[in-house]
Each structure stands twice: as C-alpha cells, then as structure tokens.
Write a protein that binds this DNA or RNA. Structure first.
Length: 575
DNA sequence: GCCGTTTTCGGCCCGACTGTTTTCAGTCG
C-alpha cells in the first residue's frame, strides 16, 4: 500500500512550494490530495490499475500523473527537482509550532539551518535574535517548540484524549457565567486519533472562563491567553484551545471549529453560490451582510438548505451530496447496541469473572454478552485448553440460566494459525455460540499469504467473524499486510461478519474499511474486546468509528434482539 | 493544482493572536 508514502511526498512538495512562496492555492491542492490519499480505503495502486486516479477527490490530471510516476518508478521527478533548489531538512523546521515557511526560509538563508539540532544550537547561542522580526521571545518560543516536537510528534488515540477533554469540559461547566460548553474538532468527529482538543463555550464573563481553563491542574504551559481564545499545552503533551463565543454565534462557531476543513470548504462554497457567507459568527447575506443564522448548527445547515449533518460524517466523503438528496444514513447509536460479543475473563487474560462481566453488562442495559477467551495456542494470554473450554461452556450455560435480565453466550477468540487453520478442531467450535477468528502471531507475512490465511479461516463454517481484521495498534504497530478488499469480498461470499474492535488503540476495522464493508453488504459486529468490566465502556469508541463508516443499525449485528441474533449466528452454519 | 447550478477561466475562508513593529507580517486553525 503506497497511499501514505505518496501522501507524505505530496505534503513535502506542499511545504517546499510554500517556502518558495508559490500560490497558496497550489500548495493547498497538494495538501488536499495528500489528505484524500490518507483517507482512501483502497490501495491507490488498484485505483491506478482501473485508470481512475482522477476520481480521487482533489486529484486532477497533474497529480494523477505524479501518482502514476511514483507507482512506476518509486520517485516523483518534480519532488526531486524541488529538492535541488531547497534542502530536504528545511521542511522539518516547519514542524516546530509557530515556525512557518517564511521563518524556515529565513533561517536557511541567513544561518544555513536545516535541522532541528542546528536550530536548537543557534537559538541557545542567541544567534536568532539578530534576524529580522526575531527577538528574545521568539527564540524562547522556538526552543520550547523544539522540545514539544521531540516530546510528542504524533496524535494520541481517541480513547486517551476523550477522558482528558471530559475533565476540562466538566471544569468549565462549573465555572460561573458559563453557558454552553462543547468540544469541537476531530474529537467531536470521533476520529481514531486526535491532534489537539478544541473546546467552545459561551460565557457572560469570558475572562473568568479563560482563568478556569488556563489554571486547570491538567495544564502544563499557557501558550496564549486572549479574551476570545486561549491555548495551552496539557500535561500529556497535547495542545488544547478554548474559545469563548457569543451565544448568537454558538452554532456557527461549533460548526466551524468541528470541521473537517474539507467539509467546511465545501459548505462555504455552497453558501457562496447561494449568495451567502458562512464564517464562525454566523451565516450572512452577501448583499447586505445581514445575519440569517448562527445560534445553532441546525440553523446554519438549514440556511444553506441542508439537514443537520452528524459530526462523524463531516469529512467531505459524500455527506453534503447525500444530505442534499435527503439520503443521509440513520447512523447507529450507542442506544441501538443490545450486547457485546467479544470479551475476556480470568479464564484467559481478563481481570474479572464471567459473572462480573455479565453484571457490568446488565448495568449498561445489554440483553446479551458473549464470553470469548483466548484459544489454546495463545500461551502468553492464558489460552484455554479444550478440556477447560468444555468446562467453561457448562459453567456459562448455568450462569445464563441463573441470571435475570441478561443472556450470557459462550464463544472463543480462536487463533488463526499460520496456515489459516484454526486453533480448535471443528467438533469443539460447533459447541460455541460465537467463534471470533483472529491473527495473533506471525504478523510479518506478505499480503498474499496473510490474506489467503484469513480467507481460509473465513471458509470454516463455524467461524462467525474475523476479529480485529487488520491487527493495527495505533501508535505502536502498523496493520499487518492484508488486502482488505479481498477480505471484504470473502466475508460477503462466506457470510462471515467482520469485527469492529472497539479497543481505543485498535479501532479495527477503521472507519474507511467499515464503510467499504457496508458498501459490499458485509455486516459488522462492534465488540469491545474488554479485559475488565470498565472496558465494556469502550463500546462508545466503536460506535463512533461505525458512525464514521456510515453504519446504520441494520449493518451492525449486535443491534439485533437476542432471538434474531442467534438466528444470524446460525446462518452461516447452514441451520 | 483543482474544479464546475457563476463551467474550461477565475475563483479558491478569513479572523485571532503573537511578537515585533510603530502599522503589520507570520502563523494557526
């Protein structure tokens, strides 16, 4: 999969063009195409083979040609040309917050700086302050910025950020004079990773809200503090922004700062065509600047003749067109979820008993759960022997009889062995309600072998679903090399469900793949893979990702009531 | 460089904040 490699090259070309002072529109064209490639569910090579590169949003004739060139030669000539004018390292300077293309060029031309190390040294020696528009303060900011880049250059998983954001939101809700409070940005869109936290409030005393925010115990450093916006760095290294907006503009500001950028650009272009102007203060008539909307998001969308669009869809992936035609999906919600089919207990590497998990699930309002401990070969995770599994089956059946208000099913998360066979024989699998087949070993196979391996497991009639189908661990491990399109096609053929694993560092399948599954009529099961009662709450992250993949309740098997679920689970076995 | 209910040229978002300046450039979102 060369999607990310090409996206990175386009981003570097954009940086280089920006440093050269090229038209921002041209620069943005490269950035937009890069984002498109990052979000593409498909292998760009497959798109190229079909001759459909120019169908990718933001990719026209010129960029399609550059993509083909890269696929052919592993290089982009234009990129090489730019690198003959400017050194590669100069773009890394732009990763320092507050340091943009103009400053990068200045540093290079005057001091020959092309690396963070050189920049740090120059700043420490006080050599920056002699340059135009550079003072002592800028020097200090650059040093702090370098530290920030080194400490944490990547985005954090949604699951690590949401609790922190909720703490900030709670503190602001309690602050005197604060009215509305909402997170915005990628957090509100439930992206799998988050770059920074955006919070919006209305406040009768803005300075007090700013005080509460900038002095919160989670704050490590205040970057800026104004009357309408303040920025801080939190203890976890992440940046957080608070904006105070007028009540009459709250909806417009929320829409604006929720993004995504591409969604907003398209929305504003639509507004312009309708003789309107959309900004963070409201929707205005172009002719006389009269405000026609702004208090709520619904109002803003209505002003451009669209229904309200759920934040999870706002990625310019066809949602505006769907809204226009009244074809927005009725997205699945947490309340639609009736049970959780993937969790572990003390029988393998979990922390609680089956009964404790069942009680916790009942608290969440579930009708059913399924206990799915690891299979025998997964020794380090306490894999269950066949004899023990038979005992567990009896115990869970008794437990389910005994408990009121919830049904406990028994299953297993069975290893897919290197050759695609399973870690228990069929006569054991057939006694289980749910068989989740997962890859936990031999990650480094090539695409063909890995895909064949999983497809073989799918062809087993007792395999209900494939667990965490791509094996990624956000920020820790890349997905194993697998052809998701072939997996989806295989799932479709065999009637196998694909899991959307809701562990915050997995979220696997990811949003784009979830959508691909839906488009091919493949159903998904959202499972938490919980290893403790508390982790059952990870369902929220899974639902967020499902919504980003446009899933409706009927696309998710664990929205089914128990009877229908059992029928669905038996379907593949042929009754 | 892309894109099209203003279609093959001429748009493409724009306001807030900082640090330096003495009226604004650079950066960010």
């Amino acid at each position: 999969m060369k999607n990310l490699e090409i996206a990175a090259l386009f981003n570097e070309i954009a940086d280089l063009l920006e440093i050269k002072g090229e038209s921002t529109f041209r620069v943005n064209a490269y950035r937009r195409a890069a984002r498109s490639l990052e979000n593409l569910a498909e292998d760009v090579e497959a798109v190229a083979d079909r001759g459909e590169l120019d169908q990718i949003p933001g990719v026209g004739k010129s960029l399609a040609e550059k993509i083909s060139e890269y696929l052919r030669t592993g290089k982009i000539g234009y990129h090489q040309e730019l690198l003959r004018e400017l050194p590669h390292g100069i773009t890394t300077l732009m990763r320092v917050p507050g340091l943009g293309p103009k400053t990068a060029l200045l540093l290079y031309e005057h001091l020959g700086i092309t690396t963070l190390d050189q920049l740090e040294q120059a700043a420490r020696e006080g050599r920056l302050r002699g340059l135009p528009r550079m003072g002592k303060k800028t020097e200090e900011n650059i040093l702090r910025g370098i530290e920030q880049v080194r400490r944490q250059s990547t985005r954090l998983p949604l699951g690590a950020v949401l609790p922190v954001a909720e703490e900030l939101v709670a503190a602001l809700r309690e602050a005197r004079g604060v009215g509305e409070v909402s997170v915005a940005g990628s957090l509100r869109r439930m992206r799998d990773t988050i770059g920074d936290i955006d919070v919006l409030v209305t406040a009768s005393r803005p300075e007090h809200a700013m005080e509460v925010f900038t002095t919160h115990p989670l704050v490590a450093q205040v970057l800026s503090r104004g009357t309408t916006r303040s920025s801080v760095v939190l203890r976890n290294g992440m940046q957080a922004d608070l904006r105070v907006v007028e009540r009459s503009s709250f909806g417009a500001a929320l829409q604006y700062f929720t993004g995504s950028k591409d969604h907003n650009v398209k929305l504003r272009e639509r507004a312009v065509r309708m003789g309107l102007k959309v900004n963070e203060y409201g929707v205005f008539r172009a002719e006389d600047d009269r405000r026609v909307a702004g208090r709520t998001e619904e109002e803003v969308y209505a002003a451009v003749k669209l229904p309200w669009i759920p934040p999870e869809l706002r990625e310019d992936q066809g949602e505006i067109e769907a809204a226009e035609r009244g074809k927005l999906p009725r997205l699945v919600t947490r309340e639609d979820i009736r049970g959780d089919l993937h969790m572990h207990t003390k029988w393998s590497d979990g922390q609680a008993t089956a009964e404790e998990m069942a009680h916790a699930a009942r608290q969440l309002g579930y009708e059913y759960i399924c206990i799915t401990d690891h299979s025998q070969s997964l020794k380090f995770a306490g894999g269950v022997s066949i004899d023990d599994l038979r005992d567990h089956i009896r115990q869970v059946r008794r437990l389910s009889e005994r408990l009121d208000g919830i049904t406990v099913l028994i299953g297993s998360e069975v290893d897919i062995l290197a050759d695609g066979t399973l870690d228990y024989p069929d006569e054991v699998l057939r006694e289980l309600d749910v068989v989740i087949a997962s890859v936990h070993s031999r990650f480094r196979m090539d695409t063909q072998a890995m895909t064949d391996r999983i497809l073989r497991a799918m062809r087993n009639r007792y395999v209900t679903m494939i667990g965490h189908p791509t094996g990624r661990l956000l920020g820790q491990r890349d997905p194993y090399s697998v052809d998701v399109e072939r997996l989806v096609a295989g799932a479709r053929e065999t009637g196998t469900i694909l899991e959307l694993n809701a562990q915050p560092d997995r979220l696997d399948l990811k949003d784009a793949h979830v959508r691909l599954a839906k488009e091919h009529g493949v159903q998904v099961a959202i499972g938490t893979d919980a290893h403790s009662p508390a982790e059952l709450r990870f369902m929220e992250f899974g639902v967020g990702t499902a919504r980003r993949g446009w899933l409706e309740p009927q696309d998710v098997v664990n929205t089914l009531p128990l009877k229908k679920l059992l029928a669905r689970l038996r379907q593949k076995r042929g009754g």
